[in-house]
């Protein structure tokens, strides 16, 4: 015995998908024409090297006022800080890109990333301006870079700004609280 269902109409989910697809096609030409060619990059420095993230993936840039180290956590986790009453983990990319961590200064900045919410902060020495770069001007990362670091990069610009892939940064399992098991 089966349960009777109505099959003469597309179910609401299906209908929704069709409508969404139509809306997307309608919206495409107007929305994508002006910015399609250019990437807006937020450039920051870390131990004398320049990095960039696509500006739309950055939720906020703020001063790193203070942080609390977490004993026993991954060495990439600088600590946790208070961002408007919520706990935000702060990571230091230098361990991943092969640079020596040199500590934190009073001028250190925090670049906040996340999808739906503030997920993590990346330590930066200085945060510069947003600049527009054509995708063609981003080249494959140099071979000399460690494989670990390359995974986080979209590429590198002519003037050696390493363009990070925000999605890859957010997904990287090393940017979590626990130290990799192999280390322990």
């Amino acid at each position: 015995m089966t349960v009777p269902t109505r099959s003469d109409r597309p179910d609401p989910e299906q209908a929704g998908r069709i409508l969404e697809e139509r809306a997307r096609i309608l919206a495409r030409p107007a929305a994508e024409k002006s910015h399609a060619d250019q990437l807006e990059l937020l450039v920051f420095t870390l131990s004398g090297e320049s990095y960039a993230l696509e500006a739309r993936s950055v939720r906020e840039v703020t001063a790193l006022a203070d942080f609390t180290p977490v004993p026993g956590a991954s060495r990439h986790l600088l600590g946790i800080t208070n961002l408007r009453g919520e706990i935000l983990p702060v990571f230091d990319l230098r361990g991943l890109t092969g640079l020596e961590p040199t500590g934190v200064t009073d001028l250190s900045r925090l670049v906040v990333l996340g999808e739906d919410r503030d997920e993590l902060g990346l330590l930066a020495d200085h945060v510069g301006e947003v600049r527009a770069v054509a995708p063609g001007e981003i080249f494959d990362p140099p071979e000399t870079l460690s494989a670990a670091g390359r995974g986080l990069l979209r590429g590198v610009t002519r003037d050696a700004v390493m363009v990070l892939d925000a999605g890859a940064v957010l997904r990287d399992p090393r940017l979590s609280g626990a130290e990799n098991r192999s280390v322990k």
Partner: peptide, 19 residues
Amino acid sequence: RIGQVGHVAGATILETGRV
């Protein structure tokens, strides 16, 4: 993202704003 780390059960924000 941090979950359970070793000896840490959670955090609290002190009146100074520090965690």
